[in-house]
């Protein structure tokens, strides 16, 4: 563990990603205290103001403070990320472990379901689910969660296959440990490394998907300050007020990028085969 922390710390880029995400997280948690203005407060006196001393990132067409809306937008991004990734993590990993451990027709069934889900482009699948379920933030989290289930399923299944013939699994069998306990106690902890990496990367994907779907009008409700909705509304004013679209876009990019470099860093730190490289 200490060696892992050291290796992770040595990776400056990943550490930077971690710091940025930590700042975003603090922003999301303490949004009401950090935001200089009420994100819903319209101000007809201050419509489409450029970035300046009063409004650091400017205001939108209703005079709402962009910075405050971005700060509150981080809440919805992280909420969607957390819940949808949580959903796909729990469902996907369970399915993957069951498929990999039991094998046979059960494995075939689960793997084919995942193949079908994989055969659609992710954003398209999420769009279809949203169109069927209707726009709401709950449905959005459900849709994004469903789309990423097969990714976790495949990773878990492949990892289980690589360890299920280990002697310690056979030892547990010889003791008489039940299959459920073997999966939870002996398999799950030993396949965590790739799953942790995928979880981190998926957070980035989920935030991107939320922004993309909201931008297309199939995401969260339009009155919620979300980076995607701000982008959508801001694009109409691009020529007169670039700050309306650029700042939400930048925050989304920064958050997604941070998750990606953090994920890559974790992969390097967790994978012993890459040890001693790049040092």
């Amino acid at each position: 563990m200490r060696e892992f922390c050291y290796r992770f710390y040595k990776n400056k880029l990943a550490f930077l990603g971690f710091i940025i995400l930590f700042i975003f997280l603090v922003m999301a948690i303490f949004a009401p205290y950090l935001a200089p203005y009420d994100p819903f407060q319209m101000d007809p006196q201050a419509m489409l103001q450029p970035p300046g001393a009063d409004h650091l990132f400017g205001t939108d067409q209703f005079g709402r403070d962009i910075l405050s809306r971005i700060i509150f937008g981080s809440r919805i991004s992280f909420k969607v990320g957390l819940i949808s990734v949580g959903l796909s993590l729990i469902v996907g990993v369970s399915m993957g472990i069951v498929a990999g451990y039991y094998g046979g027709w059960l494995d075939n069934l689960i793997s084919r379901i995942m193949d079908v889900m994989f055969s659609f482009p992710q954003i398209f699948l999420a769009l279809v689910i949203m169109a069927v379920l209707g726009t709401s933030s709950t449905n959005l989290m459900l849709a994004i969660g469903l789309v990423y289930i097969p990714i976790f399923g495949r990773i878990a299944r492949a990892s289980v296959l690589s360890i299920k013939d280990s002697l310690y699994i056979e030892a547990a069998n010889s003791i008489g440990v039940s299959n459920l306990i073997i999966m939870l106690r002996h398999i799950l902890p030993n396949i965590m490394a790739p799953i942790i990496v995928q979880t981190t990367l998926s957070f980035g994907f989920a935030i991107r998907a939320e922004a993309a779907l909201s931008f297309l009008g199939l995401g969260v409700e339009a009155d919620i300050p979300s980076w995607g909705i701000m982008l959508n509304q801001g694009k109409d004013w691009m020529e007169m007020a670039w700050w309306n679209a650029v700042f939400p876009g930048l925050s989304a990019t920064l958050a997604i990028l941070s998750f990606n470099i953090l994920g890559d860093g974790l992969r390097d730190a967790l994978d012993p085969r890459l040890r001693n490289e790049g040092e």
Binding site: L167, Y168, A171, S174, I175, R185, H186, P189, N190
Partner: peptide, 16 residues
């Protein structure tokens, strides 16, 4: 009835 395994490096769960 219990078993003692050949490879002591592989027969113990590394996470326990």
């Amino acid at each position: 009835f219990q078993m003692i395994f050949q490879d002591p490096f592989a027969s113990l769960n590394p996470r326990l």
